[in-house]
Design a binder for these strands. Structure first.
Lengths: 186, 186
DNA sequence: CGCTTTACAGACAGACCTGTCTGTTTATAT
DNA sequence: ATATAAACAGACAGGTCTGTCTGTAAAGCG
């Protein structure tokens, strides 16, 4: 465990609350109370609530992006990479009381006023799309076919995340996992 | 055009605003102002904002459910039914500035405090799932296989809706449409 | 010791939120 | 014409929101 300074406590607490309840349902007051810090300390480190949201999404992106890079580089078979990645999603959903993608959930509450957040959402989604395409490129000879299959797996992944949250059930992830493996194996 | 009474004006205005900005980003004051009615009139017809949300989701469900029933009963081929339904989604996304499923967007902002809304979300999603399963039952001999393919198409549909919203682009719907047709044709 | 940095506590402003209330106006039906 | 129902306008209460402000306490360092 590293030091527990105010800035980190705020970000950790906000991450937990934003993910669990949704960005718009969490207030600064709740964050600083549960982070056991003061409002002045919050505004000393973050200029606004939106900036905190961007910092949160950045950390999520960074962690998950590193994880995906590792998977792409690993020597296992492409189908096994998909199996592992959907397995990770299964664990994630089970461990988060079926709260799904932080980016989609944040984008669901936005009319486009904050372009910084919208850009992060699009960058993150495009990054996941390219991840699936990269795996498919390792499997198929035809690059166009690989991209097409990668896009389909991306949509299965997104749909599984969304509907596992809506239905509070893991079956969408299980179904998508099997479908993705079949897609890349045929 | 029917009469323009206050109750209908409120529901119509709220539907437009909830869909465009998200439930949590729209207030009663904005609704009654744009519906050109008074706050007392609002609370004469709806006991709370949450009740208005449920009324909104109910109308969305009713309309879309009737549409799906018509499609299932129609004499065209299953693959053509899917093509039509994804075509409808394409039009819907284009006409709504890429705001996607009202149910998923509402569910993204909820920690489970309002069970009425959560139940409507789950009922609606399960209804769409059964719609795709019913179409697949018309195509395949094996009922288990039909259900399995129906579930995959359901996830493609959900993922296409989610990511078209996130990416502000129609390609996810186009990809899902083609993938669904291939799934039911093989 | 004095100086600086960081974090603390919490009052405050100004705006917005839902929901209640009083009272007035309009339309309809008898 | 008169009674009844519906819609109107809008003040108000009580709470929450983000963000600013003043002031204090503690720790590191010369």
């Amino acid at each position: 465990m590293g030091k527990s300074n105010a800035k980190d406590r705020i970000l950790d607490t906000a991450s937990r609350l934003f993910h669990k309840k949704g960005y718009s349902e969490v207030g600064i007051n709740e964050i600083i109370e549960k982070a056991e810090t003061a409002k002045a300390s919050f505004y000393a480190h973050y200029p606004s609530k939106e900036a905190l949201c961007e910092a949160w999404l950045s950390t999520v992106h960074e962690k998950s992006e590193n994880h995906r890079t590792d998977i792409v580089k690993s020597p296992i078979k492409p189908a096994e990479k998909l199996d592992n990645y959907f397995g990770d999603l299964e664990s994630f959903m089970n461990n988060s009381q079926f709260r799904g993608c932080p980016y989609s959930n944040t984008g669901a509450v936005s009319d486009g006023s904050c372009s910084g957040i919208l850009n992060q959402i699009q960058d993150h989604k495009e990054s996941i799309r390219q991840f699936f395409r990269a795996i498919c490129q390792q499997q198929f000879d035809d690059p166009n076919h690989a991209d097409a299959i990668g896009d389909r797996i991306f949509l299965l992944y997104s749909g599984a995340t969304t509907e596992a949250q809506n239905l509070k059930n893991i079956w969408p992830v299980t179904v998508a996992r099997q479908a993705a493996i079949e897609l890349i194996s045929n």
